[in-house]
């Protein structure tokens, strides 16, 4: 039983991090209405910027804040330079453009930071044992950071005027406009927020693994899966779906083996979508 609990815990941590990436995707989808394939590379960029900030300032905290700021700023820049111009075109134009943006960001990172892997300089800690179950201090901190981010995003969405307007645009863009909501300010807030969330996800993945220019792009597929699974455009759904996929993947490994565990999470995704095409929390697409 203990191995299963440890696997599940591990799945929760991986799932929370993937869920954050999915949250960034789903925020953009909800308001700007296209799947943003550059999310992964904004994640990597956040991690690299945090590394640079941490080595310049000497503390991870300042590095982390710098990384988040850079990710948010680059995300906003992408909007002004690319996505704003495409907003009147069909979503597929923005999707394709976002793939191009992803390539550009990754190539620049490769030139600036190199392709060698980098790591956050954190001491390795032995786990705590509670009831013979191993808890990893680093994982606990990562989970807390992820949860804090989620709470902050939900507070912004539900307890601030700008968040309320964002949700109004997500629900019905034309009705929001008639009600006097300025789309431009909403978009600025949205891209800053989704960039910051992607940056945090990237930093957490970087702390958990290694930082390379490709790390974010490699995680894009599971993040998209979680965003779709959760009901695309639905923030809570993205995170819950990320955690569910993480746990399913880890706990199933003793039965299906390691080669198929990733395939398995996509099988779960397919099964759920067959029964609930709108995803876990999604509203019926026709109402959008």
């Amino acid at each position: 039983m203990i191995p299963f609990i440890e696997l599940a815990l591990n799945g929760i941590v991986s799932g929370l991090v993937i869920g954050l990436a999915a949250l960034s995707i789903t925020l953009v989808f909800g308001v700007a209405r296209f799947p943003n394939a550059a999310t992964g590379d904004v994640m990597s960029l956040g991690a690299f910027a945090a590394l640079a900030g941490a080595s310049a300032s000497g503390t991870l905290l300042i590095g982390g804040v710098f990384g988040i700021a850079v990710a948010a700023f680059v995300s906003l820049a992408c909007y002004f330079l690319v996505f704003q111009k495409l907003s009147s075109r069909p979503p597929v134009a923005s999707l394709l453009a976002s793939i191009g943006v992803a390539f550009v960001i990754r190539a620049v990172m490769g030139v600036v930071f190199g392709h060698q892997q980098k790591v956050f300089d954190l001491p390795l800690a032995r786990p705590w044992r509670v009831l013979d179950i191993r808890f990893h201090p680093t994982d606990l901190k990562i989970s807390l950071a992820a949860l804090a981010t989620l709470v902050a995003v939900f507070l912004i969405l539900h307890a601030t005027p700008i968040g309320r307007r964002m949700r109004a645009v997500a629900d019905d863009p034309s009705l929001a406009r008639v009600s006097g909501i300025s789309p431009r300010r909403i978009m600025v807030a949205l891209w800053l927020l989704s960039g910051a969330v992607a940056g945090i996800a990237g930093i957490l993945v970087g702390i958990k693994t290694v930082v390379t220019p490709e790390m974010g792009w490699d995680l894009l597929l599971p993040a998209f899966a979680a965003a779709i699974f959760g009901g695309i455009g639905h923030p809570v759904g993205a995170v819950v779906a990320g955690v569910i996929l993480g746990i399913v993947q880890e706990v199933a490994t003793p039965f299906v083996g390691f080669t198929y565990k990733i395939a398995l999470s996509f099988a779960v995704l397919l099964a759920v979508l067959l029964i609930r095409p709108k995803g876990l929390f999604g509203t019926v697409a026709g109402a959008r």
């Binding site: 191995p3 440890e6 696997l7 591990n10 993945v205 958990k208 003793p254 390691f258």
Partner: peptide, 16 residues
């Protein structure tokens, strides 16, 4: 154990 690339954790593989 044969493991897949690009994962955020290999703890399940290690545990096995």
């Amino acid at each position: 154990v044969v493991y897949e690339p690009n994962q955020t954790s290999y703890r399940a593989e290690l545990q096995k």
